[in-house]
Structure formats: structure tokens, C-alpha cells
Design a binder for these strands. Structure first.
Lengths: 140, 140
DNA sequence: TTAAATGATACTATATTAGTATCATTTTGT
DNA sequence: ACAAAATGATACTAATATAGTATCATTTAA
């Protein structure tokens, strides 16, 4: 059971790559070749990142992508939200209320707590912190 | 993006239901009817829980299932492991080492930390704590 | 003016999850 | 004795999500 899928994986690698170019335009061809990822697949991912304003695109020959934000304003959480949808530990429990004998479902309460904690932690992982290696994330 | 699937959902409901019967044998027919879940699907789930020694089965007419452990020795984590496999935030990052310029992949380190925390929290959610509503789990 | 890039979008393939069905065996209740 | 009601094992189908490919249109620098 993996939590993070390939879209997010590749998106993250791409962003790391682009960030390291320090503002220079990076094309999908370039990225694909250097990261050894299918070009067609990467294109789709970068197009989405563009729509979501994580990167900006430069059209035409010698075009490509640059970051649309500084690295410490790009979070792993954003990528997960974009490519996998909002994290929910469970769909059903809260709605279906599996412990109906209680005023409030105990499980759902516990889950909410854990969910919040998980989201809080992931939310703090910025691209910057992955780049510079100081392990520091943007304070809240 | 949901983290917990239907097998785990239904397994948990079934266990809660069985636990409340206080040692009385509960058949799948009974469970299915009362929880409004497909009988065939539930059967498969209970068979797995039996193999995994979470419940014991009583064969033959008026047979069914009882808990094989006391409720505070049954954890949500067990169910997730059984039905969804071990939780991993990522498969790929650690192996593929997406930041090869570093001695150790920063992302993978961060992920490991979060993963451990998540597992720690989930590990402590016992069936007992969902039943009695005191919110207390078995201490470690 | 053409080659190399992205934009939009439709399509296919694979894997996972969800759900159904069936035959065999066990065992209680009549 | 034996039929009914249960589980055991297992194979199968359906639906959904993930992964990956392909194509035509548009843009723009060389």
C-alpha cells in the first residue's frame, strides 16, 4: 500500500530539477532524458503543474518551464492534492457513522486527529527543504 | 484519495459487531443483514480474518464467528496490514533516491519520519477503544 | 519558414479494488 | 438419518484508479 503515486513522484523530481536550473527554462525533452522518464507522460504532468500555477510555461521553440513560485512556497502537499486529491484517511466512516450508538463516532474522531497530524506534517515539506538539505521548512 | 479501503472498513464494522455480542457466535448472514453489506463480500472478509486469527470460525449449522483475541489486542493497524499491505508513504523515493547528489536522500528521511509517526498513531487504535468510548488504547 | 516547443485532449493498457458465484465440507436441529 | 445452514476454498467478473501513449493545433525562436 503506497500513499504517493507516480504523478507526484515525477512532479517532484521535475520540480527539483527545474529549481536547480535557477530560472533557466527547462524543456520536457531535456527533463525526460535526464530523469529517464517517458516524455509523453512528463508532458502531461508539467501541463498540469502549469495549469495549477506551480510552474510557468514558455511556448515555442526553445520554450519549456520555469518555477512559478519560489521553492519554499511549493509543498509536497500541493502536489498530493493536485494529483491524488485531498488526503482522507477514510471516506466512509464519518458519513456512515459506524458507531451509531454513540453521539459521536469515536473512530471518526480519532481518525480526524491523525489525519490532521499527518496533513500538518506533510504540509511543511517544501521543495526548498528538499533542495538545500538543511531540513528546515517554512515556518507556519 | 482515501487511505483506508472497504475491506478494512467492513472488517472493522464486523469486529465491532461481533465484539458487542460478548462471545456469542455471529454468522455472516446475520452480520450482512444487520450491517447492510453484501453477504458474499463479507464472507470473504471474515474468512481472511479467520485465517489471520483475528476471529475463530465455528463450522456447521448455527456456526459463525467469534473474536479470537480480546478487543484491546486487535488493532486497526492489523487490519490495514492484512487487507492493504504495509503502509509506505512511498515506494520509489527511497529506492530510486531522487536526490542522488546528497549522501542521503532528504526526502526519504523526512518521509520515514512521517511514516513512523503515522504508523505509531494508527498502531494504537484498538478495537477496545472503539467499543468502550473511553478513548484509551492499550499502552505500549 | 521550419523545427522544436507547449496546449488540449482523447485514447489504451495495467493494476487495484470491489464484488459475485460455486462446489465442497462440516455440523446442528428435527 | 438427513436436510438446512453454516464455513472453506477458490475462481471469476466488474468497476475504478493509475499509468502511459498519441495526435493535432498553436506558438515562437533560430
Amino acid at each position: 500500500m503506497k500513499i504517493i503515486n507516480k504523478n507526484v513522484d515525477y512532479a517532484l523530481r521535475s520540480l527539483i530539477h527545474i529549481a536547480k536550473e535557477n530560472g533557466q527554462v527547462v524543456s520536457v525533452s531535456n527533463l525526460a532524458e535526464r530523469e529517464k522518464i517517458s516524455k509523453a507522460f512528463l508532458r502531461k504532468i508539467l501541463q498540469i503543474l502549469n495549469k495549477e500555477k506551480i510552474v510557468n510555461s514558455i511556448k515555442g521553440k526553445s520554450g519549456g518551464f520555469v518555477l512559478a513560485k519560489i521553492p519554499n512556497e511549493i509543498f509536497l502537499m500541493d502536489l498530493i492534492n493536485i494529483f491524488q486529491g485531498k488526503i482522507k484517511l477514510l471516506d466512509c466512516f464519518v458519513k456512515k457513522n459506524i458507531c451509531p450508538q454513540k453521539k459521536e463516532c469515536i473512530l471518526s474522531k480519532k481518525m480526524e486527529k491523525i489525519e490532521k497530524m499527518l496533513i500538518f506534517e506533510i504540509k511543511n515539506i517544501s521543495l526548498a527543504s528538499l533542495l538545500n538539505g538543511d531540513g528546515k521548512d517554512k515556518p507556519i
